[in-house]
Write a protein that binds this DNA or RNA. Structure first.
Lengths: 247, 247
DNA sequence: GTCGTTGACTGGTAAGACCATTTTGTGTCA
DNA sequence: TGACACAAAATGGTCTTACCAGTCAACGAC
């Protein structure tokens, strides 16, 4: 442990010379270990930044960078004038949409519940907020999809762009980044399923296009309710199509 | 856009006075947006830290903290003596609920839109699927919250457990992990807001308890519609309370 | 006792400095 | 002319000092 050994060192670490790792990383790791192990429990206040400086024998800049890592991980929260507090024991900071196998129907249902929830809400917001530019981008994706299908391609890339354009029309950053994550994950499965049945799904692709058109129309009209319903219908049908592919 | 406007500002932002949000967060967000949008593509070198300082008119400490966020997100990598390089375009492999500052009302609204969407859907699912054991766990958190308030504590930890117990009652792994992530982030803000007004919010805490009771009753009765409505009301009121704290 | 006020402490930010490494440019020598 | 060695500039990593604004508890006036 390069850090703790430095605690007892009488050498005030003259220069930045012979260290190996990234100083803030070491400290962040040490602190998060203390939190995970329970040495620092939720609600506790960390030592002040200046105290940590002397403890670890580093400058305040380093301590602050270490703390900023913990902050962005959601382990601690700083309150100006008061202190830095432990808010969370383990870092469930990042949400990862679990990859589910196409072959597992149960988990498909589970995943669809979340996907439908998010996408329907996003589409409803988009109906309320979409600008003419948003609408143009959505329309472009829609046409691109049609063209792709006519060109005997799957058009899944255009499909993705269609959904992404809608989500961007919410003008809500949280929705945008969450949907980006969800759809990027979901797309893998869809593509996989689709490519298995390249030959006999012409009718299904038409149905998809109709559903997309319905969403677009609702967005164009600014009809929140219709948009939400169209999105829900589309996603539920999409799930249904995947089930067909599986059979 | 507080950042870009500052770029053209001739005022060298004298003191730390009248700004709203966390400076490094703003810059990190701006940079990651540039990366996601393709203004900076993979392999590109960012401007040097010192250049970024002048661009954003902030100190190097701020720029470094912003960059450290991007680094821990895996978007960029720094090479000493050379520069900072974009290593990844989108962080779609993981969703991170962006930190927003309590002081920024616009971003609060944005965040609440997503939080309400998810929580309401989760509560509706929970009403459908909760087992007696789930119900017991929720009840326990409810009572714990009451006890905490009576003991002159904030009870935010118990509040969190209440919501978590509900989400677990959905028995949907995707909802569980997403909500865990969202609420852990949101809790920081709530706690921060609450602690500011420890003395004069006894009436508000009572209101919270009533809202929680309404949710519990609906879950107990298995009434999906009532549960969703109670959850929506609770969250919207919670947002309203945060606004009060801000004023 | 209650209520303001004060002052020490805390995180947030700024500015300037030094170090080690990388990169680039330059000049020397073959 | 080409390859090589060296120096200078640029860059990230770290340290130091300083000021600001918010928090909070102790103290004193009423």
């Amino acid at each position: 442990m390069p850090i703790s050994s430095r605690l007892t060192s009488d050498q005030p670490r003259k220069s930045t010379g012979s260290r190996n790792g990234h100083l803030p990383d070491e400290i962040a790791q040490d602190l998060s270990a203390k939190i995970a192990s329970g040495v620092l429990s939720v609600g506790d206040r960390l030592p002040s930044e200046r105290d940590l400086c002397t403890q670890y024998a580093v400058s305040r800049a380093v301590v602050r960078e270490a703390l900023s890592q913990l902050k962005s991980d959601g382990l601690v929260a700083a309150r100006a004038g008061s202190g830095v507090y432990v808010t969370q024991r383990d870092s469930t900071n990042a949400f990862r949409f679990q990859n589910f196998s196409v072959s597992d129907l149960n988990r498909l249902e589970e995943a669809m519940e979340l996907l439908v929830t998010i996408e329907v809400a996003a589409t409803r917001l988009a109906a309320k907020r979409r600008t003419p530019e948003d609408l143009k981008k959505i329309k472009r994706a829609l046409i691109g999809m049609e063209y792709a299908i006519a060109s005997d391609r799957l058009g899944d890339e255009e499909d993705y762009q269609f959904h992404q354009a809608i989500v961007e029309a919410t003008h809500n950053q949280h929705f945008i980044s969450l949907c980006q994550h969800l759809e990027a994950s979901a797309r893998n499965i869809i593509r996989q399923a689709r490519s298995n049945t390249k030959t006999n799904h012409a009718d299904l692709l038409d149905a998809v296009q109709d559903e997309h058109n319905a969403i677009y129309d609702a967005l164009k009209n600014g009809d929140e309710k219709a948009a939400a319903e169209a999105a829900a219908r589309h996603l539920q049908n999409a799930a249904e199509r995947i089930r067909i592919y599986l059979a």
